[in-house]
Simulated scan of single mutants.
Amino acid sequence: MLQGFNHLTLAVSNVEISFKFYRDFLGFKPEAIWDHGAYLSLGDLWLCLSLDNVRQEKDYTHYAFSIAEANFPLFHQKLKTAGILEWKENKSEGESIYFLDPDGHQLEVHCGNLQTRLKSSFKDPYPNMIFF
């Protein structure tokens, strides 16, 4: 049976550029790098960057990372200063920034968690929302 999330692999067009973005800009810990890929970590997350053709899908698929509320304004300013493109405006519970990595992967930095989202949704549920 499944035990939890194992790792996230992202197709990247340039391993070095993406490695630097995730390491230097987002603060991931470098674990290994080679010609066609890299491993980085962030807390319990294992991130694999894999050299491949990157597809630009336009849907709501994205990868969200946690940030403390106290660090949110500084991080948001860091994004703006670096000219990082934001792809969506936050309309949900908690502070969030939606932005793109060098290959256009849709990322989010969010101050809440599942419990804060459920609490907010319980007060103002989505249409036909059922809670378990």
Rank of each mutant, 00 (worst) to 15 (best):
N90V: 08
Y39V: 04
V109D: 07
K119P: 05
S41F: 09
F131E: 13
E57L: 12
K119L: 09
M129K: 11
L49R: 02
F5I: 15
L107D: 06
L118H: 09
E57H: 14
H62I: 12
A82D: 14
A68C: 12
E93S: 11
G37T: 06
F132N: 09
H62V: 08
E95A: 13
F28C: 04
D44W: 05
F132V: 03
K123G: 11
A70H: 09
N113F: 05
Y63G: 01
I84G: 01
C48T: 00
C111M: 04
T9S: 15
C111Q: 09
L79E: 08
Y22I: 05
A38E: 03
L26T: 06
L40H: 08
L10H: 05
Y126P: 06
F19E: 02
F75S: 00
S50T: 08
G43L: 07
Q115I: 12
Y60C: 10
F122R: 05
S18F: 04
Y63D: 13
P30N: 01
D44T: 13
N113Y: 05
S66F: 15
R55W: 06
G83H: 10
D124I: 07
D35A: 06
S41V: 00
Y39L: 10
H76M: 14
M129I: 03
K58T: 14
D103M: 10
E93N: 07
F21K: 01
A64V: 14
T61W: 01
F19M: 01
D24R: 10
H110F: 06
V15E: 09
F75T: 02
L45A: 08
N113S: 03
F5Y: 02
M1V: 15
L85D: 04
Y98R: 04
I33N: 00
F72C: 06
E57P: 06
K58S: 09
F19D: 00
H110Y: 13
Y60H: 09
L107E: 07
I17Y: 02
L26G: 07
E57V: 12
V54C: 15
D52S: 09
